[in-house]
């Protein structure tokens, strides 16, 4: 849905949310990958580095939504 007159879609807000969260999670995941905590402090299945790939996925999805539903594109 687009709000007429201001051209900001709800999907744009969702894109922003996923993008920001994705970047933060990816960054935190990469930091843990480079500086792993002591084994007794790691989450279960730490070796899968879920923060890296999940954060990456969210960043890609959020980036696409933000770009595709950006108000500037909607006006075009």
């Amino acid at each position: 849905m687009t709000t007429p007159g201001r051209s900001a879609s709800i999907w744009f807000f969702i894109g922003i949310s996923l993008l920001v969260n994705g970047v933060l999670i990816l960054g935190a995941g990469l930091y843990e990958y480079a500086h792993p905590p002591a084994p007794e402090l790691q989450v279960v299945l730490f070796r899968l580095h879920s923060g890296v790939w999940w954060g990456g996925l969210l960043t890609l999805l959020g980036g696409f939504y933000t770009w595709h539903y950006a108000p500037s594109r909607a006006r075009d």
């Binding site: 969260n21 933060l24 999670i25 935190a28 930091y31 843990e32 989450v43 879920s50 923060g51 954060g55």
Partner: peptide, 15 residues
Amino acid sequence: LARYCGPGLLGLGVT
């Protein structure tokens, strides 16, 4: 959530 989610993921889960 606490079992699997490290920094960042935990914040998103809580959110």
